[in-house]
Each structure stands twice: as C-alpha cells, then as structure tokens.
Design a binder for these strands. Structure first.
Length: 300
DNA sequence: ATGGGTACCTGTCTGC
DNA sequence: TGCAGACAGGTACCCA
C-alpha cells in the first residue's frame, strides 16, 4: 500500500507529536519482515528525536537522554559508574527504521484500546501509544545504531534520489535510464533511480507524462525524462495534499482514509474512458504487477 | 551486472 | 452457500 505520499502523510502527522517524548515500553506482536531483537526490551527511557522519511522508510531516532537536564546531579562525582551501568543496560542511541510494507499504517493514540489481531508493534510513550497495524506483515521495524551503520546502510543504501530533491533533474533521470533496457514503469518501481513511486503513482505519473509504460528506459529523450520527473512530482504532491491513497488498508495517524484514489486517472480503471481522449483504459501486467494506461495518449 | 521470477502473509472479491 | 483462485499499495533474495 503505502507509497511515498502515504509514508509522508504518516510522518507529518507524527513528527511534532512524538518529538521529545520518552519511551515507556515497547511490545511486539507477530513477527514482521525482519526480527526486531532484544533491543525492544531496552527501549524504555529513550527519547524520541525528529521523525524522518527516506523513500518509503521512516526513521525514528531514539536517544539516550542522559545529557538532558531533567535530573541534575554532580556529574564529576558519579558520572563514570552511572555511565558504565547505563551502557550495559540500554542500547546505544540509535533509532527504529520502520516500513509499512503493503498493508501497514501507524496510529498514535493517547488511550489505546486493546491491541487487535493485526497490531504487531507498539511503542508506548509519554506522548501516547504508537501502534503499527499491518495485516499482511510485509512491514518492518528494525533497530539500527544509526543511519550510518547496518542495517540502515544496507536498507537505505540501495535507494535512488528523493523525488523532491531540488538537485534532481530530468538530466539525471536521462543519464541513469541510458544504462537500462527495462520498461520505464518497471524502472520507476525499482526505486534505485528515483524513490517514492509504487504501483499506483508509477501508472499515474506515466499517464500524466503521456509516456507508454512499456517504453524501454534508454529510448526516452531528455525532454521526456524532464516531463516524467515533473509529472511524478505533481502526482506525488497532489497525493500528499489529499492525504494519500486508501485502496483498502491505509489510514493516516488519526485513522482517516486518504483521498487520492478518487483522483486516480488510470489506476484501477480498466475499461473506463481515458479522462483525456475517451479511449478505454488498458490493464497489462509488467513484472507481475498491474499497469494501467491509455494506449492512445501514452506514446512509446 | 542486469533482469526476471519467487517468496513473504492475510484478507477480500469473483466466478463456478 | 461453499470453495478455489486471483489479486492487493513492497522489496529482498536467488537464479539465469
């Protein structure tokens, strides 16, 4: 489910509320994509930093608040033994890397009800309880000591550019695509050139750019790469403004569905008239994923 | 190295 | 009504 807009809507809804909160406890449900080790038991007392997004991942920094002045003591006297004891019990500062997979969503509630059968991770904090609901369990919660250490480096290192990075240009797309023989839709989904477009927004952006999703990357001109990047940015920005897309599972942090799916021009609209020319929208399968497009408006 | 297919898991919808 | 099968927003991994 969650593509970049849904993850960004989630981040925006959580960041301010969680900033500075202290972890009370962490609870695991059924296993997710990767095991979260015994770090979970030692998260209590850590303080939440600025929630960030990279691609479809969220990074929740958790820092040891030892340097915080909420509890004053003569540091010179007992700092060494206390520091040694803390180091043995509490993980080094780091954070949780979260992924929503296909069906995940996060909610932060002050008074959470009992956990449901699809609630697989819970972080109780002084700002409320953060809960990950994910029926298909393709999502992930992983501890990393930092963004510059494993496993964060491994997971994030393969990601392409952020679509809204002002340094990213159509020329970058063009150069990267010159090396590729795959269809442009497949390349967008792969996310190693530009991140953020999943199955919905890849189809939507290609429609808006009037590019046939089957076009081999290396056949795209510079002008069409520029058009594609602009269309991708427009599509993602519109989706973020509308709270993302909800096909079935996605909810924002308040439990509200997104609104973009009603604005989809081709995704999920097989046989319906193209909003531009009226020809029936086609559905094909690329890389075992459905692709929707207009065979008349979108050119190879 | 690139690129394709497989696997992970559960729920919902369709057609017989 | 029951049931098998297809399909669903992602992505790491294995093999050609």
């Amino acid at each position: 489910m969650p593509e970049l807009p849904e993850v960004e809507v989630t981040r925006a809804g959580l960041a301010d509320r969680l900033l500075g909160a202290r972890v009370r406890s962490a609870t695991l449900g059924k296993p997710l994509r990767w095991p979260l080790g015994r770090e979970v038991a030692a998260l209590s007392g850590l303080q939440v930093g600025q929630l960030m997004r990279r691609g479809k991942y969220l990074w929740l920094p958790l820092q040891h608040p030892g340097a915080e002045p909420w509890f004053q003591r003569p540091a010179a006297v007992d700092a060494p033994p206390l520091a040694a004891a803390a180091a043995a019990e509490v993980p080094r500062s780091g954070g949780l890397l979260l992924h929503l997979g296909m069906s995940g969503s996060l909610a932060l509630t002050e008074q959470p009800g009992p956990a449901g059968p699809h609630d697989h991770f819970e972080l109780a904090t002084t700002a409320g309880t953060l809960r990950l609901t994910d029926p298909r369990r393709f999502g992930a919660v992983v501890w990393s000591d930092g963004l510059d250490t494993a496993p964060a480096t491994k997971l994030l290192g393969v990601l392409g550019a952020e679509p809204f990075d002002p340094a990213l240009t159509g020329a970058h797309l063009y150069m990267a695509f010159q090396q590729r023989r795959t269809a442009v839709k497949t390349a967008l989904l792969a996310g190693d050139v530009v991140v953020g477009a999943g199955n919905i927004y890849a189809s939507e952006a290609l429609f808006r750019a009037r590019i046939d999703p089957r076009t081999p990357c290396r056949r795209l001109s510079l002008a069409r790469c520029e058009r594609l990047l602009a269309a991708l940015r427009d599509t993602l920005a519109q989706a973020i403004a509308l709270g993302g897309s909800t096909l079935r599972d996605f909810k924002d942090v308040h439990g509200m569905a997104g609104g973009f799916q009603a604005q989809a021009l081709v995704y999920g609209r097989e046989g319906q008239p193209c909003p531009s020319c009226g020809a029936p929208v086609r559905r094909i399968v690329q890389g075992m994923r459905a692709t929707y497009f207009c065979g008349r408006c979108q050119k190879r």
